Lab assay of single mutants.
Amino acid sequence: MPSETPQAEVGPTGCPHRSGPHSAKGSLEKGSPEDKEAKEPLWIRPDAPSRCTWQLGRPASESPHHHTAPAKSPKILPDILKKIGDTPMVRINKIGKKFGLKCELLAKCEFFNAGGSVKDRISLRMIEDAERDGTLKPGDTIIEPTSGNTGIGLALAAAVRGYRCIIVMPEKMSSEKVDVLRALGAEIVRTPTNARFDSPESHVGVAWRLKNEIPNSHILDQYRNASNPLAHYDTTADEILQQCDGKLDMLVASVGTGGTITGIARKLKEKCPGCRIIGVDPEGSILAEPEELNQTEQTTYEVEGIGYDFIPTVLDRTVVDKWFKSNDEEAFTFARMLIAQEGLLCGGSAGSTVAVAVKAAQELQEGQRCVVILPDSVRNYMTKFLSDRWMLQKGFLKEEDLTEKKPWWWHLRVQELGLSAPLTVLPTITCGHTIEILREKGFDQAPVVDEAGVILGMVTLGNMLSSLLAGKVQPSDQVGKVIYKQFKQIRLTDTLGRLSHILEMDHFALVV
């Protein structure tokens, strides 16, 4: 994948999101292997301009796509893939009243899908469409860049269908997702969380590099694949309309690839034109409109599966009536509230959605109805927002919020430890010299600072030695090549209790 991002070429006709291997024109390309080798690009942008032909009021008969309808489940399912879809609609009884809503608040519980998330729908649909058009064949390999849930859905379907599955996901995604993927037989590649989507090191860039190296491999490409919004247009939206008897006044959905909100909203605009569509985008993402909503100094966020630093091709923002931004604290607070007060075992993005819903639905009156999409299960986040310690460490809970008995030293300040200034190293000294210094002084790690004293990161003896043994660096290389740029900081005025929580999850903390 090139470091400079080429513009994806656009073909003359058809839909841009065809499933299957992508040609340089962004659509299915038939021909000899030699032709494909000559024409197939190194990668295709996940934010390529959409060429979708959908228009409100256009006859369904003019759609270029294969459409399906929700099917009634048999008493005995032939395999677990038949437990994807037909998820329950559940009334939220307490939270709406707590925040003064007059309307009825309903939750579409997508964590009841077989793999635990709304992404099971698009995973199965992308595979079925690729099999139907002859792209996927027995023994082929599926590769997908994902925040985890699409990966789980694909790995689940691949396990049943017999495909090899490789999932490329950023490091910030939970260990629970990784464990589930491994249990399903998927191979996992992790990428830096802070890598831009168009960087060769991003999950998108690495996935395309693997595709170019592995024979008979395919990126189904949830960011561009029409099967993504079509899955929701054909099934999720129809289920909502049936469950609500066609009567709903507002739908609120958090947005990642945009397939969920695009597919549902398009069908609702056709069948229930008075329904307002509300999009939820986390602070630090750029999906919301108008652009002024996205202006923030924050560039990272903890909530998973929603928000991006690019506009995915499948996201149709014209069908969203209003956007709201959400933050991590309210997302996790509301997710825990949904679990504790409503018994809905949902993930953090569901918290984002409901946090926005109780604001947006203030305009609705008694007798009206708001539906929220709860995308995934708490299963993926047992060591994250479900953990009091994690919430404390991230600053989303305060010590006084917890009532468990603490040891005698818990409320003492870090400054009472009488710490001395640490050994520091410059980023320009060599790895070999740094190892000598650390061994001589008896230290395992040291902060790396520039000549102005600005902290650049941390270097550890173990990481340097393993990097040297693996051949990633040489003793003569500058130590700046092996620094940890993500590390926890703590102030002298913070409590030892807070430091204790940090050290339970990290090997060190830097006192500043």
Rank of each mutant, 00 (worst) to 15 (best):
S19M: 09
A237H: 06
P16C: 03
K211P: 08
K102F: 02
T193S: 05
C52W: 03
S227D: 10
A48E: 06
M250L: 15
T150V: 02
E187M: 04
P33N: 10
K247G: 08
A8M: 06
W54D: 06
D221W: 04
S50L: 05
T260D: 00
L105Y: 03
G116K: 13
D120A: 12
P2G: 14
E62L: 12
I143K: 02
K119Q: 05
P64N: 07
S227Q: 10
L42V: 05
S174Q: 03
D129P: 04
R51D: 07
I142C: 05
L220R: 02
G263P: 02
V118E: 05
R132Q: 11
K267Y: 05
I240G: 00
D245M: 08
V168H: 01
G116S: 13
V118P: 08
L106F: 15
K271T: 15
D179A: 08
M250P: 00
G256M: 00
R266Q: 05
Q222I: 00
K119Y: 01
T146M: 02
W208P: 08
G134L: 07
R58Q: 15
H17W: 13
E104Q: 14
G115V: 06
D140L: 04
C15P: 06
P192H: 10
H232N: 04
G100Q: 12
R91M: 05
M173Y: 08
E171D: 11
A265F: 00
R190W: 02
G20E: 15
K97H: 09
G26S: 10
A60R: 11
Q242I: 14
K36V: 03
F112W: 01
P6D: 10
K102E: 09
G274T: 04
P49K: 09
S27I: 11
T53Q: 10
I166Y: 08
K36S: 03
H65P: 06
P88L: 06
D79E: 11
T87R: 01
S199R: 08
V10P: 08
A159C: 05
H22P: 03
E62D: 15
S61V: 06
E40Y: 10
E131C: 02
C103W: 06
S27V: 14
G116Q: 13
I142M: 08
S19K: 13
A183H: 08
L220P: 03
R209Y: 09
A195P: 07
E9C: 14
R18Q: 15
A265R: 04
W43E: 05
Q222K: 04
S27C: 13
P200Q: 08
E201K: 09
L268F: 07
T236W: 00
D245W: 03
Q7K: 11
L154V: 07
G256Q: 00
N194E: 11
S199F: 06
N113L: 00
R190M: 05
A253T: 15
I240Y: 02
T262P: 02
G205P: 07
V252H: 09
M89G: 05
A157N: 07
Q243Y: 08
P215H: 12
R196E: 04
A38D: 12
K25T: 08
E9L: 07
K97A: 08
G57V: 11
G153F: 05
N225E: 04
R276A: 15
E239R: 01
G100K: 08
G263L: 00
D249F: 02
S23N: 04
A107P: 07
L56S: 10
L42K: 11
C244K: 02
N225V: 00
M169W: 04
P70V: 04
L181G: 00
W43D: 03
S61Q: 15
R196G: 09
D35L: 06
G11L: 07
G11Q: 03
H22S: 04
V180R: 02
I143R: 01
V168L: 07
P33G: 10
S61L: 09
G116W: 13
R190H: 06
I166H: 07
K82I: 09
I80N: 07
Q7I: 06
Q222R: 02
I142E: 00
I76W: 07
T68M: 03
E270R: 07
Q55P: 06
E9Q: 14
S32N: 05
I240S: 00
A155F: 04
